[in-house]
C-alpha cells in the first residue's frame, strides 16, 4: 500500500528553498481529503541545520538521508539516492518544486520508478475512485495559458509525481510548540561516482542590472508591436524613470535584448510598481514578476489573463492612453488629468 504525500525538500547553500513551504500547504490541503500523512524527504550533508529550519511546520514525517556531500548538479547520483528513498517511503504522491533542480532531477527518478510525472502543475486536487481509493488530479495551464489540462496517473501507477509551480500556493507558516513531526533516518547505498564535476559558480555579468534593480518597470507585450506603440511606451518609461522589460515576442522581434525578457526563460523582476501594455499574461511570463505593490495592466481584451494578476486594469487601446500619459507628464503630473 502506498501512503503519504511526500515533498522533495529542495535545498541550496544550506537553506531549504522557499517553495518547499508552499508545497507543505498543498500537501496539507490534500491531506484534508485523503487523510494521508504529509511527508518530507531530505537528502543532505548538513541535515541537522536543514532539519532545524523545518521545525514547527505541520509535517507528519521527515525522512532523512545523511550524505557525505550534497552532490549539487550531479543528478545522475542524486536520482539514484531519491529513488532509494522513495522505494522505502512508498508515498502515493510526490510533490516537487518546478524549479531548475526539480524539473531536471525528478524526470530521472520517475523513469527509475516507472512512475507518471506531470510538469508545472498549478492546482492539485484529490479525487475518489469508485473503489474508494484516491487519485491526484494534476491541473496545469497549457498552450500559453489558453486552456488548462488535467492529467492523472493510471490506476496502479504509483507514486503520482508532479512538479508544482512556485508561487501558486501560499507558504505555510511555522507554529510554536510541538508539531509532532517524526524524523526517520534512511540508509542509502551510495551510487557510483558522478559523470559531472562542479567547477565554479560564475557571477552573472548582468547587462540587465537596471531592470532588476528598478523600482518601476514598464513591460511591453506583443500589443506594443503595432504602430509606434513601442516607441510611445519607451518614452513613457523614460519620463517615469522606469526600466523597460518585455515578453518573448518583443525579444523575438529584437525590440528588447534577451536578458530583458521577463519570465520563465528570462529574468525575474521584483519592482514596486509594474505597468504592462499589451501583455496577455501567459504564466510563463507572469511568474517572472514578483512582489509588486502596484500592478497596472492595459489590454484591449477584457478576458486577458493579465487581469487576473494585475491590481488595476484598463480595457483599452494603449495608444491614446500612452499619448495622454505623455502629454500629462509633460504638463506636470497627474493633476492635469482630473
Amino acid at each position: 500500500m502506498t501512503q503519504g504525500i511526500c515533498i522533495f525538500a529542495e535545498h541550496w547553500k544550506r537553506e531549504i528553498s522557499a517553495v518547499v513551504y508552499e508545497l507543505i500547504t498543498a500537501a496539507k490541503q490534500l491531506k484534508e481529503v485523503t487523510g494521508e500523512p504529509v511527508q518530507l524527504m531530505l537528502a543532505a550533508k548538513d541535515c541537522q541545520e536543514l532539519l532545524k529550519q523545518l521545525e514547527g511546520f505541520p509535517v507528519d514525517e521527515i525522512y532523512v538521508a545523511k550524505l557525505e556531500e550534497d552532490y549539487d548538479f550531479q543528478e545522475d547520483v542524486l536520482s539514484d539516492i531519491y529513488e532509494q528513498m522513495l522505494r522505502s517511503i512508498q508515498p502515493s504522491c510526490v510533490l516537487i518544486p518546478a524549479s531548475d533542480v526539480g524539473r531536471s532531477l525528478f524526470p530521472r527518478v520517475a523513469c527509475r520508478l516507472r512512475a507518471g510525472m506531470t510538469a508545472d502543475c498549478t492546482e492539485l486536487e484529490a479525487a475518489k475512485r469508485e473503489d474508494g481509493s484516491f487519485y491526484l488530479r494534476q491541473i496545469k495551464p497549457s498552450f500559453e495559458e489558453n486552456v488548462k489540462v488535467c492529467i492523472c496517473c493510471k490506476e496502479q501507477v504509483y507514486p503520482q509525481m508532479a512538479t508544482v509551480r512556485e508561487g501558486v500556493y501560499e507558504a505555510c507558516e511555522a507554529v510554536d510548540g510541538d508539531s509532532g513531526t517524526k524524523v526517520q533516518y534512511l540508509e542509502v547505498s551510495l551510487p557510483e561516482a558522478s559523470g559531472i564535476q562542479f567547477m565554479e559558480e560564475l557571477s552573472c555579468e548582468d547587462s540587465n542590472e537596471k531592470l532588476q534593480a528598478s523600482e518601476i518597470v514598464v513591460v511591453g507585450g506583443k500589443g506594443t508591436l503595432k504602430e509606434d506603440n513601442f516607441r510611445l511606451m519607451c518614452q513613457f518609461a523614460d519620463k517615469l524613470g522606469a526600466a523597460v522589460g518585455g515578453t518573448r515576442p518583443l525579444m523575438d522581434e529584437g525590440k528588447i535584448p534577451f536578458d530583458h525578457q521577463i519570465g520563465q526563460t528570462g529574468c525575474t523582476i521584483r519592482p514596486k510598481i509594474c505597468i504592462s501594455f499589451g501583455v496577455s499574461g501567459a504564466i510563463q511570463h507572469t511568474e517572472g514578476i514578483k512582489n509588486t505593490d502596484l500592478f497596472l495592466a492595459v489590454n484591449t481584451a477584457e478576458d486577458a489573463p493579465i487581469f487576473q494578476v494585475a491590481d488595476y486594469g484598463a480595457v483599452a487601446d494603449m495608444k491614446p492612453i500612452l499619448q495622454c500619459l505623455l502629454e500629462m507628464i509633460e504638463n506636470g503630473g497627474c493633476n492635469s488629468g482630473n
Binding site: 512512475a115 507518471g116 510525472m117 492529467i151 501507477v157 478576458d303 487581469f307
Partner: peptide, 18 residues
C-alpha cells in the same frame, strides 16, 4: 503512465479593479 483526462477553459476570476 499519465493520461490527459480533460481540458477546459479556465474560469476567469479577475481580482483587479477596472
Amino acid at each position: 503512465p499519465t493520461v490527459v483526462t480533460e481540458s477546459f477553459r479556465p474560469q476567469i476570476i479577475n481580482t483587479c479593479e477596472f
